[in-house]
Structures are given as structure tokens and as C-alpha cells.
Design a binder for these strands. Structure first.
Length: 481
RNA sequence: CGGGGCGUAGCGCAGCCCGGUAGCGCGCCUGCUUUGGGAGCAGGAAGUCGCCGGUUCGAAUCCGGCCGCCCCGACCA
């Protein structure tokens, strides 16, 4: 227990609410080190579930896990011009080791392209060595000025995929494959609908040719970049001299990609679904999917109720659900309900003497509603709930996103919307960075993506929202995390 | 780095203006009674008042300096 304070309502102060939910659900805590968080067991369990699901998908699509060092020689970072410009200001640098000044400072990785390319250059000689499809689960350090639990911390956990291909087309296909993979994970596991598309020059990854991203709308109508997939062209191959010999005996640089999602996803999960009571967690990512709360008065009642409850526990575990029996004594059922609701457990089963008599349990869903289920039908109810609920959360999140998306915005609407209630604003863009920058100055909104075809408005806009010149593309604006 | 707020028991806070035995709520421990939406009673443990210095007979309180954290902005996943 520990945290009996109420949660600040979303409407009152969204960021206070966000922190309160994290504390109440015991997902993470501030650490003694500025900007760094401690991920507590319940939060880490969510991350592990995410890792498991993603890792399966990476492996199904032919990727293999590896691990590269935390330290990167400072000179490596400098080999790709845009890359160093983008990342150098954010790095932590080790200058001493074993009490002695190092000959060359070591950067704590802000991302691993450089050290991975240095190794790929050794491993790749022939077209027969391609493609190389690697992933690593690692921690990363980026010295951010301002941090927020899960969303932006100095050190964070992520996965970074790095692939090298013989052809441009294959690399581009890989970038798209991963973008789709991320999107389906976010929708199916996190119940988070995301827009996909290309980033503008100013928003792309330092060193990439193009960056694709997933963007999800949070409950405060700000957008969260939940994943990125970069087409790197031959930029890093050239910087690290990663060449291979073609079938015709010619030397060519490899074409590569990199892509990642991080513990930020946990923050996105929180902000997408949770309410003023605490965490709401889609069942697939819930460390505890069902909690059984037994209720009794006398010792005799306790014995019978607990026996029945243990049977239910067994039954549901056999059905593959993550279930806990909360048999703590000296704590009233109501107190347990509050605790588990705060932690985001999707389903609670209450079993008391009355239920034992009727051979049933009361099933209460985290998002509301309480119904009796027969003891014999628990397993079926559990499975049905597990399948149906994420769909309901996704549908609700999708509806919320669409309600807060405005298509074909005028300049006035864009300014009003971005300085007001927020959301996604679709409009024409001339492609001139001056317009992008002006909009950012005026509204703090940035182009989240140039949306993929599926998300585009039909017919598309013909004029730039800002300057009125001919639009070269449609863009989606939002304030972002 | 700029603006705001805050450092007093594990957590949340009061006390500071006006210096004089460090307090409240929650949590924790023990016991008894409780248990269908945050239990009650009784007893108990727990704090060098962020740090350093100054003023004073005496500092949580007044003065000076420093440090840390949180929130808002600029930077970013």
C-alpha cells in the first residue's frame, strides 16, 4: 500500500495526474540521480511483457538479438556529420577509468549506429553476408534538460534494430516492415491507435535519409512519438566503410536501417487509457490480469471461501491467465479493490459466502460493470474477456482520436486548435521549413508526420495552411511530448 | 539555462512571521475486535528539521552562502 492519497483528476492537472497514476500503481519512482528513474517491479513487468511481444515479432521476421558495448569511442560519433551534430550535445562522456585519464573519451551510447557499423564493416565482405538483421535490447543515455517519468529520462531502456542490405529497395522495405510491425503491436497489444508516416527534415533522426514514425494521441490531446523506423541509405555505410562485393565483383556500400521503441511506450500506455482512479492496462500487457478477492466474516467462512478461491485461481492459471489471489488478512475487501484498481488489474473476481452458495463469483471489470459468473464458466469468461477487452479499449481510443482530429484546417483553425484544446490537425504543407518553423513559433505545434496514404484526407489539400502556396503534401500537426 | 514551487518521521504536511522541551494525518509494529467498496480501539517504534557558516544564553524558526528535487519553458525519444 503506502500511497493513500487521491489522484489529481486529469481535468485539473494532466501532468500531476500522470505522476500520481505512476506512483499509485507503483510503476516507477524518481531516483537519487537527477533525471533518472527507478522502474519498479510492476512497471518493469509491463515492459517485460512488451519486450516479449516485440521480441517474438522481431524473431518471426528474421532478426537476431546481439549486444554491443555501452561505451563508444568519441571519435566514432563524429564520423557521420549530421549524427554527431544531433547527438553530441546530449551525450554523457567518460574521461577517466581506473583512476587514470583515458586516451580517448568514451561516450555512453545515445544510440548504437556507430559502434554497430564499425563491427559490421568487419563482418560484411560479400553479398552472401547480407542482409544482416540485428536487434539489441539495451539502455541508452541522453542528457536531456528536462525529464519526465517514462516519457523522457536521462537513461532509458529500449530496443534498437540495425539492418544492412544489398539493395536500396530491400532496406526501404525493411523500414516499412518494421513500421507496420510497430503499429500492429501498438494497436493489438497496447490498444493504442497510431498514425504512421514520414517525418519532415527538421524532425528526422540525425543521420537518416528518412524517418518514419508512429504517433499516438494522448488523453490531453498531445501527440506522443511511440516508435521510429529510419531509412539510413548509405550514410553510415560510407562513414564506416561498410562495403560488400556484389555478384559481379564490384564493391558497393550496404544500405541500412535502424529502428527503435523504448520504455516511453509505458508512458504512452498510461496516458492513453488510464482514468482518475489509476492505471488502466490492456489485459495482454497487464502483469496481473485477474485478481481474486475473497470475502469472509468467520473463520469457518474464510476456510470455505479460500478453498473455492484457490480452485478458481488454479482454473484460471490453467487457462493461461496471470492471476493472483489476494488472501491478505486484516484488510477489508474495499481497500483491496482500490489498491488493485490503482494498479490497473483488468478484472477482479469477488468471492464471498453468498457466491460460494450460488457457485459463482462476481466479476468486476476495471473499466466498470459488475456481473455474476458461474464458477464453471470462469475460464470461458476469462478468455472471452481477454479477447474482447483490448478491442474495446482500442475502439474507444480510436474514437477519441478521431473526435480530436480536424481535417482540412485553415490557418486560423490551426492556430486556434493548437493553442486551445489540441489534437491532430490535418492540413496542406508547401514543404518550406520556414512555414513549419513559423507554425511552431506561433502554436508550439510541430508536424508529427506526413501521413501514410491510409490516413490522408481525400481529396487532399491543395494549399499550404500557412503561406497559401501550393501544397506538396498533407501534414498532421499537434503539440507533442 | 530562465521562471515558479518545495526540502521537518517511510509518505503527505503543520510549526517559521513573533527564537525557548519537534507536532498532526496516513503508513509501520503489538494485541483484541473486524472483513460484500478505503475498519475500530488500545499500546508502541520512528526525525542530527537538506548542507555549511553567522547572530544569540538558546535557531526548524533570524541572516548569508551552497546543494538537491518537482513543475512550467528552450533541447529531445
Amino acid at each position: 500500500m503506502g500511497n493513500e492519497q487521491g489522484i489529481t483528476p486529469r481535468a485539473e492537472d494532466f501532468s500531476a495526474w500522470y505522476n500520481d497514476v505512476i506512483m499509485r500503481a507503483e510503476l516507477a519512482d524518481h531516483s537519487p540521480v537527477r533525471g533518472c528513474m527507478v522502474i519498479r517491479p510492476h512497471g518493469y513487468a509491463i515492459w517485460e511483457l512488451m519486450q516479449g511481444a516485440l521480441d517474438d515479432r522481431f524473431k518471426q521476421t528474421g532478426h537476431k538479438n546481439a549486444y554491443f558495448p555501452l561505451f563508444i569511442p568519441q571519435s566514432f560519433l563524429a564520423k557521420e556529420a549530421e549524427h554527431v551534430e544531433g547527438f553530441a550535445p546530449q551525450t554523457a562522456v567518460v574521461t577517466q577509468g581506473g583512476g587514470k585519464e583515458l586516451e580517448e573519451p568514451l561516450v555512453v551510447r545515445p544510440t548504437s549506429e556507430t559502434i554497430i557499423y564499425a563491427m559490421l564493416a568487419k563482418w560484411i565482405q560479400s553479398y552472401r553476408d547480407l542482409p544482416v538483421l540485428l536487434n539489441q535490447w539495451a539502455n541508452i543515455v541522453r542528457w536531456e534538460m528536462r525529464t519526465r517519468l517514462f516519457l523522457r529520462t536521462t537513461e532509458f531502456l529500449w530496443q534498437e534494430g540495425h539492418t544492412a542490405h544489398a539493395t536500396q529497395q530491400e532496406a526501404e522495405e525493411e523500414t516499412q516492415l518494421i513500421l507496420r510491425l510497430y503499429r500492429s503491436f501498438m494497436e493489438e497489444w497496447m490498444a493504442l491507435p497510431v498514425l504512421t508516416g514520414v517525418k519532415t527534415e527538421s524532425e528526422k533522426f540525425a543521420g537518416a535519409v528518412r524517418t518514419y514514425a508512429c504517433e499516438g494521441l494522448m488523453q490531453d490531446n498531445k501527440s506522443l512519438q511511440t516508435g521510429t523506423s529510419h531509412y539510413l541509405g548509405q550514410n553510415f555505410a560510407k562513414a564506416f566503410d561498410t562495403q560488400y562485393q556484389t555478384q559481379n565483383g564490384e564493391l558497393e556500400y550496404v544500405w541500412s536501417t535502424s529502428w527503435g521503441v523504448s520504455t516511453r511506450l509505458v508512458g504512452g500506455l498510461i496516458m492513453a487509457h488510464s482514468d482518475d482512479v489509476g492505471l488502466v492496462c490492456p489485459p495482454r500487457l497487464a502483469p496481473v490480469q485477474v485478481v481474486i478477492v475473497p470475502i469472509w466474516k468467520s473463520d469457518a467462512e474464510r476456510d470455505t471461501v479460500l478453498a473455492v478461491a484457490r480452485g478458481m485461481l488454479e482454473q484460471l492459471r490453467e487457462a493461461g491467465l496471470r492471476v493472483e489471489l489476494d488472501d491478505r488478512e486484516g484488510m477489508k475487501p474495499g481497500a483491496k479493490y482500490y489498491e488493485w484498481e490503482g494498479r490497473g488489474v483488468p478484472v477482479r473476481l469477488e468471492v464471498g459466502p453468498r457466491d460460494v452458495k450460488r457457485e459463482q463469483a462476481m466479476l468486476a471489470r476495471r473499466t466498470g460493470g459488475k456481473t455474476p459468473v458461474p464458477g464453471s464458466g470462469l475460464r470461458r469468461a476469462g478468455e472471452a474477456g481477454r479477447a474482447r477487452w483490448p478491442q474495446e479499449l482500442l475502439t474507444a481510443a480510436l474514437a477519441r482520436r478521431e473526435e480530436n482530429s480536424l481535417r482540412g484546417v485553415t490557418k486560423e483553425q490551426l492556430v486556434e486548435l493548437m493553442n486551445g484544446r489540441g489534437g491532430f490537425a490535418y492540413g496542406g504543407y508547401c514543404g518550406d521549413e520556414a512555414c513549419e518553423e513559423a507554425i511552431k513559433q506561433e502554436t508550439k505545434a510541430t508536424i508529427r508526420v506526413l501521413p501514410d496514404e491510409e490516413f490522408r484526407t481525400d481529396p487532399g489539400p491543395s494549399e499550404c495552411v500557412w503561406c497559401g502556396k501550393k501544397a506538396v503534401t498533407e501534414a498532421v500537426w499537434a503539440r507533442a511530448y
